[in-house]
Nucleic acid binder design. Structure first.
Lengths: 245, 245
DNA sequence: GTAGTTGATGTGGTTGGACCACATGGAATA
DNA sequence: TATTCCATGTGGTCCAACCACATCAACTAC
């Protein structure tokens, strides 16, 4: 990475120089969320590098979920600072899963760890829990598999966010995204979707109830069993074992 | 991200197309760890895109820790497939910390969560524990602050790896890297480094002993207190509270 | 014959310039 | 006044050239 913290001006590639400049602007507060980077041509001239190098740096920042590039002119145009750490984590995890160097089982296990921790610490008065409840209501009325799974994602994310730790909920979402493809394929392995969906609905209600009753320990157990059970039923049976004790 | 899984050929930017092609080569096993990507010029011709677009895609993969680009010819030349998920996670986390959208306190808390889980599950016969012990011996002899901290990083990483979950240890390392700058600065706040170092040495020994005695629960408690205590003493007192129960 | 030199080759790194598609907003027009 | 049209500025893409670097084979000097 360009973050060697060492080769400041030694043999630094040009786009890394641009990257360092932009990162400094960010940490110094000269670039804030929603702000605009100088136009590519202008930035190239300012830093005395080619536009190509500026673009390579911006591509990286875009992949990291730090900026978004928009063509045209007006509101959505230009390169704008955003804050989507999940995109970077999700892409990175997915790529490394593709290269077989991050076992899917480890990802599932980590997801269980983070999510059970999150529900065990969720505050019962967190607004996210209300949203989670609404999502469950919608799941009751949902028949299409795609709809159900989309709501399922949103429910688990809302639950994780109720713990109030942005890093945990971001990583959790990325982990889920990284194995989304696998999960979707595995869903086809389920012997009886309707009964599975019913079971998932009951388990979701039980988890939310435990959180609302300030029983974080039980909520953690339930969510761990919930996730583990799903992947096992779908044929991804690795025995993640109990994860929070 | 280019991972929309939807806009396959709809309005896909050119470098995303290249990215998709390379990712497919990876997941299909046509590109393996240590393997070489086609030369930029050749790949550009093959995919009928400009070399610029190929380079933008490679820049992203490089930032993701998936490839490494080397000039010249011979062994280290060309663009080679590597597997360093930590670089992507570390850079992404660091950037988003810079933009103030990932609180340092949350990162510390997450690190405590992952690390205490890891030691609670570390197998007493893991070879990483022997390495961890050797690192502690070297820390006993270390007087320079920089040396000590470097060994400290290695010790904690070895401990985390003993749990056998690549995702957890990778994320943990990245979390640490993301706040490395802060930690280094905070070390200067310590009132008495020598006594702090002595305390850290004792705590390290106690953690390792607990793991070796198959007492994962105690090891988890010790490591949580260890990390929390360090950041609190250094002035990053956020009250991460107990994290594993 | 052996050791050293030199140049051809192939890699990524960088540059400048050109053109495109797009979205806006103001100027010219009906 | 309402509509049309175009100048402007943005990122997206491509091309052609050059550089620095590392290797390896051919060549040269001893």
């Amino acid at each position: 990475m360009w973050s060697n913290h060492i080769n400041y001006y030694l043999s630094m590639r040009t786009h890394e120089l641009v990257l360092a400049w932009i990162e400094k602007q960010l940490s110094d507060g000269h670039l804030v969320l929603g702000g605009r980077l100088p136009a590519e041509r202008a930035l190239a001239e300012k830093l005395e590098v080619s536009r190509t190098s500026v673009r390579e740096a911006i591509r990286i920042l875009e992949a990291m979920g730090v900026v978004r590039a928009g063509v045209g002119s007006g509101k959505d145009a230009g390169t704008i600072v955003i804050a989507e750490p999940g995109t970077a984590l999700g892409s990175a995890l997915r790529l490394h899963v593709a290269t077989q160097h991050l076992p899917v089982a480890d990802i599932v296990q980590t997801r269980i760890l983070l999510e059970s921790w999150a529900v065990s610490r969720a505050r019962a008065d967190a607004p996210e829990l209300l949203e989670a409840g609404r999502l469950l209501d919608r799941m009751d009325a949902s028949t299409a598999v795609d709809d159900f799974l989309a709501l399922d994602v949103a429910f688990h994310l809302a639950l994780a966010e109720a713990a109030g730790n942005a890093v945990v909920s971001t990583i959790m979402g990325s982990l889920r995204e990284a194995i989304e493809g696998y999960a979707a394929a595995l869903t086809l392995n389920l012997p009886d979707w309707d009964s599975t969906a019913d079971r998932l609905r009951r388990e979701h209600r039980a988890i939310l109830a435990a959180v609302n009753h300030h029983d974080g320990g039980r909520a953690a157990e339930l969510v761990a069993a919930h996730i583990e059970g799903y992947y096992r039923e779908a044929g991804l049976g690795q025995d993640p074992a109990e994860t929070t004790a």
